[in-house]
Design a protein around this nucleic acid. Structure first.
Length: 214
DNA sequence: CGGTTGTAGGGTCAAGTATT
DNA sequence: AATACTTGACCCTACAACCG
Protein backbone atom coordinates (compact mmCIF):
# COMPACT_ATOMS: atom_id res chain seq x y z
CA UNK A 1 0.00 0.00 0.00
CA UNK A 2 2.26 2.81 1.26
CA UNK A 3 5.95 2.82 2.14
CA UNK A 4 6.91 5.32 4.83
CA UNK A 5 10.12 6.33 6.56
CA UNK A 6 10.14 7.27 10.23
CA UNK A 7 13.28 9.20 11.19
CA UNK A 8 13.53 9.72 14.95
CA UNK A 9 16.38 9.12 17.38
CA UNK A 10 14.10 7.98 20.20
CA UNK A 11 13.49 4.23 19.73
CA UNK A 12 10.38 4.27 21.91
CA UNK A 13 8.70 7.02 19.92
CA UNK A 14 9.82 5.48 16.64
CA UNK A 15 8.33 2.14 17.56
CA UNK A 16 5.13 3.80 18.68
CA UNK A 17 4.84 5.58 15.32
CA UNK A 18 5.46 2.33 13.45
CA UNK A 19 2.77 0.61 15.52
CA UNK A 20 0.24 3.39 14.90
CA UNK A 21 0.95 3.33 11.15
CA UNK A 22 0.73 -0.48 11.04
CA UNK A 23 -2.64 -0.37 12.76
CA UNK A 24 -4.13 2.58 10.88
CA UNK A 25 -2.64 2.10 7.43
CA UNK A 26 -2.86 -1.64 7.09
CA UNK A 27 -0.57 -3.15 4.50
CA UNK A 28 1.84 -0.25 4.69
CA UNK A 29 5.54 -0.82 5.13
CA UNK A 30 7.48 1.37 7.53
CA UNK A 31 11.25 1.88 7.40
CA UNK A 32 13.12 3.34 10.35
CA UNK A 33 16.10 5.64 10.80
CA UNK A 34 17.67 6.83 14.05
CA UNK A 35 19.67 9.67 12.51
CA UNK A 36 19.71 11.97 9.50
CA UNK A 37 22.58 10.02 7.99
CA UNK A 38 20.58 6.81 8.31
CA UNK A 39 17.53 8.50 6.80
CA UNK A 40 19.56 9.75 3.84
CA UNK A 41 20.86 6.22 3.37
CA UNK A 42 17.35 4.77 3.40
CA UNK A 43 15.97 7.25 0.86
CA UNK A 44 18.97 6.61 -1.37
CA UNK A 45 18.21 2.89 -1.36
CA UNK A 46 14.43 3.18 -1.73
CA UNK A 47 13.09 5.34 -4.55
CA UNK A 48 9.56 4.09 -3.99
CA UNK A 49 8.92 5.84 -0.67
CA UNK A 50 5.59 7.67 -0.34
CA UNK A 51 6.34 9.79 2.71
CA UNK A 52 9.04 10.57 5.26
CA UNK A 53 8.27 11.53 8.86
CA UNK A 54 11.17 13.58 10.13
CA UNK A 55 11.95 14.49 13.73
CA UNK A 56 13.51 17.92 14.22
CA UNK A 57 15.67 16.71 17.10
CA UNK A 58 17.94 14.27 15.27
CA UNK A 59 21.43 14.21 16.80
CA UNK A 60 23.27 14.83 13.50
CA UNK A 61 20.93 17.57 12.25
CA UNK A 62 20.54 21.01 13.77
CA UNK A 63 16.96 22.27 13.68
CA UNK A 64 15.55 22.41 10.16
CA UNK A 65 18.88 21.67 8.47
CA UNK A 66 17.93 18.00 8.41
CA UNK A 67 14.80 18.84 6.45
CA UNK A 68 16.81 20.95 4.02
CA UNK A 69 19.32 18.15 3.46
CA UNK A 70 16.59 15.57 2.99
CA UNK A 71 14.74 17.81 0.55
CA UNK A 72 17.93 18.41 -1.37
CA UNK A 73 18.72 14.69 -1.54
CA UNK A 74 15.21 13.59 -2.57
CA UNK A 75 13.12 16.59 -3.71
CA UNK A 76 10.37 14.26 -4.98
CA UNK A 77 9.75 12.76 -1.52
CA UNK A 78 7.06 14.45 0.62
CA UNK A 79 8.39 15.14 4.11
CA UNK A 80 6.27 15.82 7.16
CA UNK A 81 7.85 17.22 10.32
CA UNK A 82 7.10 15.45 13.58
CA UNK A 83 8.26 17.54 16.50
CA UNK A 84 7.59 18.56 20.08
CA UNK A 85 8.18 22.16 19.09
CA UNK A 86 5.03 24.09 18.19
CA UNK A 87 6.30 27.58 17.42
CA UNK A 88 4.56 29.08 14.44
CA UNK A 89 7.73 30.53 12.91
CA UNK A 90 9.32 27.08 12.98
CA UNK A 91 6.29 25.64 11.17
CA UNK A 92 6.43 28.47 8.65
CA UNK A 93 10.14 27.85 8.10
CA UNK A 94 9.52 24.12 7.63
CA UNK A 95 6.86 24.85 5.01
CA UNK A 96 9.24 27.26 3.29
CA UNK A 97 11.76 24.42 3.06
CA UNK A 98 9.16 22.23 1.37
CA UNK A 99 7.60 20.23 4.19
CA UNK A 100 4.06 19.05 3.39
CA UNK A 101 2.90 19.04 6.99
CA UNK A 102 3.73 19.51 10.64
CA UNK A 103 2.58 17.04 13.28
CA UNK A 104 3.19 17.84 16.97
CA UNK A 105 4.33 14.88 19.08
CA UNK A 106 1.42 15.57 21.39
CA UNK A 107 -1.03 14.66 18.60
CA UNK A 108 -3.51 11.91 19.61
CA UNK A 109 -3.22 8.60 17.76
CA UNK A 110 -6.46 9.00 15.80
CA UNK A 111 -5.62 12.53 14.76
CA UNK A 112 -2.19 11.36 13.68
CA UNK A 113 -3.77 8.77 11.39
CA UNK A 114 -6.13 11.33 9.90
CA UNK A 115 -3.16 13.62 9.31
CA UNK A 116 -1.14 10.90 7.61
CA UNK A 117 -4.05 9.88 5.39
CA UNK A 118 -4.58 13.53 4.46
CA UNK A 119 -0.91 13.99 3.57
CA UNK A 120 -0.76 10.73 1.61
CA UNK A 121 -3.77 11.95 -0.35
CA UNK A 122 -1.66 14.87 -1.49
CA UNK A 123 -2.94 17.47 0.96
CA UNK A 124 -1.13 19.53 3.56
CA UNK A 125 -1.72 18.94 7.26
CA UNK A 126 -1.32 21.53 10.00
CA UNK A 127 -2.63 21.19 13.55
CA UNK A 128 -5.70 23.44 13.84
CA UNK A 129 -4.97 24.48 17.42
CA UNK A 130 -1.56 25.81 16.38
CA UNK A 131 -3.15 27.81 13.60
CA UNK A 132 -5.55 29.36 16.08
CA UNK A 133 -3.17 30.12 18.93
CA UNK A 134 0.48 29.35 18.18
CA UNK A 135 3.40 31.50 19.26
CA UNK A 136 3.45 35.28 19.22
CA UNK A 137 4.19 36.88 15.86
CA UNK A 138 7.75 37.91 15.02
CA UNK A 139 6.97 41.59 15.62
CA UNK A 140 4.25 41.62 18.26
CA UNK A 141 4.41 45.37 18.70
CA UNK A 142 4.21 46.15 15.00
CA UNK A 143 1.17 48.30 14.33
CA UNK A 144 -1.56 46.65 12.30
CA UNK A 145 -1.48 49.38 9.70
CA UNK A 146 1.97 48.16 8.60
CA UNK A 147 0.89 44.54 8.39
CA UNK A 148 0.75 43.24 4.79
CA UNK A 149 -2.83 42.10 5.42
CA UNK A 150 -3.92 45.73 5.39
CA UNK A 151 -2.83 46.03 1.76
CA UNK A 152 -5.50 43.53 0.72
CA UNK A 153 -8.72 44.69 -0.89
CA UNK A 154 -12.07 43.87 0.74
CA UNK A 155 -12.69 41.04 -1.68
CA UNK A 156 -9.22 39.60 -1.14
CA UNK A 157 -9.74 39.67 2.64
CA UNK A 158 -13.07 37.95 2.15
CA UNK A 159 -11.38 35.18 0.15
CA UNK A 160 -8.57 34.93 2.71
CA UNK A 161 -11.11 34.59 5.54
CA UNK A 162 -12.56 31.55 3.77
CA UNK A 163 -9.05 30.17 3.16
CA UNK A 164 -8.38 30.39 6.91
CA UNK A 165 -11.47 28.23 7.46
CA UNK A 166 -9.78 25.57 5.35
CA UNK A 167 -12.15 25.88 2.40
CA UNK A 168 -10.99 24.95 -1.10
CA UNK A 169 -11.09 27.36 -4.03
CA UNK A 170 -14.14 25.54 -5.28
CA UNK A 171 -15.92 25.92 -1.95
CA UNK A 172 -14.95 29.60 -1.69
CA UNK A 173 -16.31 30.20 -5.19
CA UNK A 174 -19.58 28.58 -4.16
CA UNK A 175 -19.81 30.61 -0.94
CA UNK A 176 -19.06 33.95 -2.61
CA UNK A 177 -21.10 33.09 -5.70
CA UNK A 178 -18.22 33.71 -8.10
CA UNK A 179 -16.28 31.51 -10.55
CA UNK A 180 -13.54 29.27 -9.20
CA UNK A 181 -11.03 30.89 -11.52
CA UNK A 182 -11.85 34.24 -9.94
CA UNK A 183 -11.02 32.82 -6.52
CA UNK A 184 -7.71 31.58 -7.90
CA UNK A 185 -6.88 35.06 -9.13
CA UNK A 186 -7.67 36.51 -5.71
CA UNK A 187 -5.49 33.86 -4.10
CA UNK A 188 -2.63 34.72 -6.45
CA UNK A 189 -2.93 38.40 -5.51
CA UNK A 190 -3.07 37.53 -1.80
CA UNK A 191 0.10 35.43 -2.05
CA UNK A 192 1.84 38.22 -3.91
CA UNK A 193 0.84 40.91 -1.39
CA UNK A 194 1.68 38.76 1.63
CA UNK A 195 4.99 37.76 0.01
CA UNK A 196 4.40 34.06 0.56
CA UNK A 197 4.63 31.16 -1.86
CA UNK A 198 1.71 28.97 -0.86
CA UNK A 199 -1.82 29.24 0.51
CA UNK A 200 -0.78 27.43 3.69
CA UNK A 201 1.74 30.16 4.49
CA UNK A 202 -0.89 32.82 3.77
CA UNK A 203 -3.29 31.07 6.14
CA UNK A 204 -0.66 30.91 8.87
CA UNK A 205 0.14 34.60 8.39
CA UNK A 206 -3.54 35.49 8.48
CA UNK A 207 -4.13 33.44 11.61
CA UNK A 208 -1.36 35.41 13.36
CA UNK A 209 -3.36 38.58 12.74
CA UNK A 210 -6.82 37.17 12.86
CA UNK A 211 -8.37 40.62 13.35
CA UNK A 212 -6.64 41.87 10.22
CA UNK A 213 -9.01 39.98 7.95
CA UNK A 214 -12.24 40.98 9.65
C1' DC B 1 -6.54 20.89 -7.63
C1' DG B 2 -3.51 24.95 -6.97
C1' DG B 3 -1.42 28.50 -9.27
C1' DT B 4 0.05 31.73 -13.37
C1' DT B 5 -0.70 34.55 -17.32
C1' DG B 6 -3.28 37.31 -20.45
C1' DT B 7 -7.41 39.82 -21.52
C1' DA B 8 -11.58 42.63 -20.83
C1' DG B 9 -15.05 45.49 -18.44
C1' DG B 10 -15.93 48.90 -15.00
C1' DG B 11 -14.77 52.42 -11.47
C1' DT B 12 -11.78 56.19 -9.80
C1' DC B 13 -8.93 60.11 -10.12
C1' DA B 14 -5.86 63.58 -11.85
C1' DA B 15 -4.81 66.53 -15.72
C1' DG B 16 -6.09 69.03 -19.72
C1' DT B 17 -9.51 71.61 -22.40
C1' DA B 18 -13.77 74.09 -23.34
C1' DT B 19 -17.46 76.93 -21.80
C1' DT B 20 -19.71 80.35 -18.96
C1' DA C 1 -11.82 82.16 -11.90
C1' DA C 2 -15.19 78.62 -11.57
C1' DT C 3 -17.54 74.87 -13.50
C1' DA C 4 -18.32 71.08 -16.70
C1' DC C 5 -16.66 67.78 -19.83
C1' DT C 6 -13.13 64.69 -21.88
C1' DT C 7 -9.18 61.81 -21.74
C1' DG C 8 -5.83 58.63 -20.15
C1' DA C 9 -3.67 56.01 -16.52
C1' DC C 10 -4.35 52.92 -12.95
C1' DC C 11 -6.57 49.52 -10.12
C1' DC C 12 -9.98 45.94 -9.08
C1' DT C 13 -12.71 42.22 -10.48
C1' DA C 14 -13.84 38.44 -13.42
C1' DC C 15 -12.89 35.00 -16.71
C1' DA C 16 -10.50 31.53 -19.96
C1' DA C 17 -6.61 28.96 -21.09
C1' DC C 18 -2.85 26.73 -19.60
C1' DC C 19 0.78 24.35 -16.69
C1' DG C 20 2.54 21.20 -13.03
Amino acid sequence: MYRLLVADDHPLFREAMVAVIARGLSGSETLEAASLAAALEVVAQHDDLDLALLDLGLPDAEGLSGLAQLRQAVPWLPVVIVSAEQHKHTILEALNLGAVGYIPKSTPRDTLLVALQQILAGQVYLPPDIMRTGSPPASPTAPLKHHPLTSLTDKQREVLAHMVKGESNKMIAYRLDIAETTVKTHVSAILRKLRVSSRVQAILLASERDDGIR
